[in-house]
Design a protein around this nucleic acid. Structure first.
Lengths: 338, 338
DNA sequence: TTGTACGCGTTATCAT
DNA sequence: ATGATAACGCGTACAA
């Protein structure tokens, strides 16, 4: 690569000091308007570009933020990231995205890489790993700004941005009950994660509140994959008393459920209603569009970024933990509109 | 954030020089096994972590690579990125992903930001912008390692990794002809981009080679969106002689086409066959699965990264431009299986 | 208002 | 085999 022009080059050209140039470029008060103008002028002419590395080394800030997500090819996470970018780019930050693929070792590795790259903070949606809290403890210890979004972990002093998963699940099940469904099954997911625990709780409470009995057999955990959705739904449909509705904690398993229900010659929503979770784009454009819960991911991203910015600004002050909870929105489509 | 331990700290503790410590940690030949062992030992004890910023400032390498894509929430680009990561992470590089949303100004802005962040290279799939070659010219001038993937631009000395779009289109249309289709329309896209030009050429040539007349009216350009696919397909179906097949240069417009065909009461594939492009996951899991072209995105990502690594390694040597072209794979599903 | 001088953490080039 | 020193490019207290 070609050599870049530094403040020294432009200082030399103007018979000034690098210090003066630096000040002029940073709009320091105590510089004459003339020199400032002159410096900026020639900086432009010489195609000067600040070396962020040097600035970072000096200031201790890299202006890089690490974002860690299970994966980035789901619309939900991609949208959250976009929200984060929208908020952070104008402030001069860069965003480094890492994927964990829900693997604990990758998560740990990514976090360490990010720390090593001197990121100014980490915004993370945790993987399914259950109990290795040590990585996060060490982050806490090192006082690296840390914000959770969507998939959080309860930690003293750490802010988080999530949606009200309990409420989302509750409203979905309430809606199914309103449609006349009597036996509502639940496709759950790893309940060591708070979001899936909350969706489960919302499901359960909605049933109880409306006079239904809660049947443990109608709840099954599985991974967020189409095939898994099919597999479990097959079990449901082969029960003596098959369910007449499925509330799925994932759009992907909801899709699998729909495929399996059709394969069994049953009609949706007449025989079985289905509601998913996340409002992935495909739920809208299927022939049989899928009811689901929207999580306003862009907003979630923006708020996560804002929380980070506040935390950075109030550096030394008393840390005030923020716990932001967004309202989910039930979107009713064909799969549950009787 | 807490202060990190530096090589000075560990030098002080061992009554050594920072230089020695540095050498020991970097496995320099001319260091006694004892001191090396000792240094590494205490480095571990003191939780030493190399400051990559300082190393970058010194070496002129940031070990960051910029990846620029139109968007990252399509499976194709997400997969390419994953391939890039798989190849680059083990080599100690980090990947900074930027989205252009197909907007010229964002593309330019992102590139400049990446340069400013001192990335060691840029891997890019260009946006639709047509003629502002200046950004790339300036990259060329600055001798920043640059690799194109998928959406390339013809530039002297710049390597690229693409698939054979011409061949992909050709085989798709050949397949439609084999199914007995007589009037094959083409949903095209911005043909200032090479990939769409090539798909158009493959379509045209396949028709000609099999004795069909090429009808300009059966080719329409539109954006890669479901709604656009519907809109154009509506026009097709209202023709006096409607087409009996649609080859779409995008899976999304193919989906729109399918929706519209159904809305017109026609059957797929009996009345109209449809083939898309990219092998997005939804093409597989639709009730009416969609025939498409697979672009082996992960492989594309890996090769792009490899090409970059080679370019970096052979720094000062004669640049040898690589033009890698992958073979596309036609995947036949229900939407075109008569 | 501007210059001087130093430090951020590393590595590379001399010496020793 | 190790030490001393300079340099990467920038920002900033201190001095002038």
């Amino acid at each position: 690569m070609k050599k870049k022009t530094t403040i020294y080059d432009i200082a030399a050209k103007l018979n000034l000091t690098a210090a003066t140039v630096s000040r002029a470029l940073n709009n320091n008060e105590k510089i004459s308007k003339n020199t400032r103008k002159l410096v900026k002028q020639t900086a432009l002419e010489m195609n000067y570009e600040q070396n962020t590395l040097a600035r970072a080394l000096k200031s201790g800030k890299s202006f890089n933020v690490g974002v860690v997500v299970p994966r980035m090819d789901s619309n939900f996470f991609a949208s959250v990231i976009r929200g984060i970018e929208e908020e952070l780019y104008p402030k001069g930050y860069h965003v480094i995205v890492c994927q964990t693929h829900d693997q604990e070792n990758l998560e740990t590795g990514n976090i360490n890489s990010l720390l090593n790259a001197q990121v100014d903070g980490i915004l993370i949606s945790i993987s399914k790993s259950n109990d290795n809290t040590n990585v996060f403890d060490s982050l806490l210890e090192k006082q690296v700004p840390l914000i959770f979004f969507d998939r959080k972990r309860d930690m003293e002093g750490i802010s988080s941005v999530t949606i009200d998963d309990y409420q989302g699940a509750y409203s979905a099940v309430k809606h199914l009950i309103d449609q006349g469904c009597k036996r509502i099954a639940h496709l759950s997911n790893d309940r060591t994660l708070e979001i899936f625990r909350d969706r489960y709780r919302g499901y359960k409470q909605a049933l109880i509140d409306h006079g239904f009995e809660f049947d443990e057999n109608l709840v099954v955990e599985c991974a967020s994959k189409i095939e898994e959705g099919r597999r479990i739904t097959k079990q449901f449909l082969e029960m003596d008393q098959r369910p007449d509705a499925i509330f799925s904690s994932s759009d992907f398993t909801a899709l699998g459920a729909i495929q399996e229900i059709k394969a069994h010659g049953l009609n949706i929503p007449q025989d079985v209603c289905v509601v998913g979770f996340s409002n992935e784009p495909f739920t809208r454009f299927m022939d049989l569009s899928i009811s689901t819960i929207d999580q306003s991911p862009i907003e979630m991203g923006r708020l996560t970024a804002k929380t980070f910015l506040e935390e950075v600004k109030s550096k030394k002050k008393i840390k005030n933990q923020q716990t932001i909870i967004l309202e989910p929105e039930l979107i009713i489509r064909k799969s549950s509109s009787r």
